[in-house]
C-alpha cells in the first residue's frame, strides 16, 4: 500500500466532505473512550458509522466521570454510555450547568448490585435470595473480618451504599471497598483459582459476564423513594433497604453545539439504540476474541448491517 498516496488522499478527503456531503462540519467529531471494553467498542462502532457518512472522527481517552464536564465545554462531542447508577449524578450535575443534553436512551437496561460467580452457589445453595446469603455469611469470612462475611463493594466514590444496606437489613457482613474496577476483577480472579465463594459489586452489561458466569443477589425489590424515605422498603426506619433498580437506563449524551455543527451525525446519534445482547457481543469481541477495538467495531458492523443501516438512511 502506498502510504504517501494514502496520506495525500486522506489530506484531500479531509477537506472534501465540506463541499461534497451534507452540511456537516469537516472538523472531527470527538468521541470519548473510557477504560471498559463495551464502551470502547460501541464508541468505535458509532465512530465508524459517522465515518461512513463522510464525517471525520477522533477518539480521546478520558475519565468516565470527568467526561461530562468536557462534553459540556465541547471538548468532546458526545458520550455513548451514560449509566444511570454509575454516572447519573455527574450527568445530572453537568446537565444543570448547561452545555450538554440527553440524546435518548438505548434499549439496553443496566443493573448494578451485589453479585456472585456461579461457583459460589455450591457453598451457599440458597442463593440468589439475600436471606440465604445472610445465612451463609460465615462462608464469606476472611482473615480480617472474623466470622462475619465480607462483601466487596465498588470504590467509595461510586456511592453504592453497601454499608447502609448491610445495616438496614441487619446483615452479618463487613463491607470492604475496592479501590478500582480492576481490584474487583483481581479478587474474583483470585477466588476463581480455588473456587472460593465471594460476593462482590458488579454490573451489567459487562465483560465479566462472559468470563465468569454469575448472578445478582435478589434483594427486596426496588421501590421508588427507597433511598429517600425510610418508610419505604421492609425496614421502616432505614434508607437503602432494597436492591437497586433492575432496569436502570443507559443514555446517550450530546454537546449542545453538535446539532448545529454536525446535523447529519446528530440525527443518527438520536436514532442509535443498542440492546443488551448487542453490547455484550461487542465486549466479547474484545474481551474474549482479543480483537483491537477498531477491528471489533468493524467486524460487528459487518455482521449486523440490518441493525445500523436503518439509522443512517
Amino acid at each position: 500500500m502506498n502510504k504517501f498516496t494514502t496520506a495525500l488522499t486522506a489530506g484531500v478527503l479531509a477537506f472534501a466532505p465540506m463541499t461534497l456531503l451534507a452540511e456537516d462540519s469537516s472538523d472531527p467529531i470527538v468521541i470519548p473512550v473510557h477504560n471498559w471494553s463495551s464502551q470502547i467498542v460501541m464508541s468505535h462502532v458509532v465512530g465508524q458509522i459517522f465515518e461512513s457518512m463522510g464525517n471525520n472522527v477522533e477518539f480521546v481517552t478520558t475519565d468516565s466521570q470527568a467526561v461530562y464536564e468536557s462534553v459540556r465545554l465541547g471538548d468532546v462531542t458526545l458520550e455513548m454510555e451514560v449509566w444511570e447508577g454509575a454516572f447519573g449524578a455527574s450527568f445530572r450535575a453537568a446537565l444543570e450547568k448547561g452545555g450538554l443534553h440527553d440524546a435518548g436512551d438505548h434499549d439496553a437496561v443496566t443493573r448494578e448490585d451485589w453479585w456472585y460467580p456461579m461457583w459460589t452457589k455450591d457453598a451457599c445453595p440458597g442463593l440468589p435470595s439475600w436471606e440465604a446469603l445472610n445465612e451463609c455469611a460465615a462462608v464469606f469470612a476472611t482473615a480480617e473480618t472474623g466470622d462475619k462475611g465480607r462483601y466487596l463493594d465498588g470504590p467509595v466514590d461510586w456511592l453504592k451504599h453497601g454499608q447502609e444496606r448491610v445495616e438496614a437489613l441487619g446483615m452479618d457482613f463487613v463491607v470492604v471497598n475496592a479501590g478500582s474496577a480492576a481490584a474487583l476483577w483481581a479478587e474474583i480472579g483470585a477466588a476463581e483459582a480455588d473456587k472460593r465463594p465471594v460476593v462482590v459489586f458488579n454490573w451489567t452489561p459487562n465483560f465479566a459476564e462472559a468470563v465468569w458466569p454469575g448472578e445478582f443477589v435478589e434483594f427486596p425489590e426496588w421501590v421508588d423513594g427507597c433511598d429517600k424515605d425510610p418508610a419505604v422498603g421492609p425496614n421502616p426506619d432505614a434508607l437503602y433497604d432494597c436492591g437497586n433498580p433492575a432496569d436502570g437506563y443507559l443514555k446517550k449524551a450530546a454537546w449542545d453545539g453538535m446539532k448545529d455543527k454536525w446535523p447529519g451525525a446528530y440525527d443518527v446519534l438520536t436514532k442509535i439504540s443498542f440492546t443488551n445482547p448487542q453490547i455484550a457481543e461487542m465486549a466479547r469481541l474484545v474481551d474474549v476474541e482479543e480483537l483491537e477495538p477498531e477491528e471489533a467495531a468493524a467486524e460487528w458492523l459487518e455482521a449486523n448491517p440490518d441493525v445500523w443501516q436503518g439509522w443512517t438512511s
Binding site: 477504560n35 471498559w36 471494553s37 470502547i40 478500582s180 480492576a182 476483577w185 483481581a186
Partner: peptide
C-alpha cells in the same frame, strides 16, 4: 498508559 488501564479494567494480566 490508556491501554494498560483498559487491559487492567478487563482483567487481562
Amino acid at each position: 498508559g490508556a491501554k494498560l488501564l483498559a487491559m487492567m479494567g478487563s482483567f487481562k494480566l
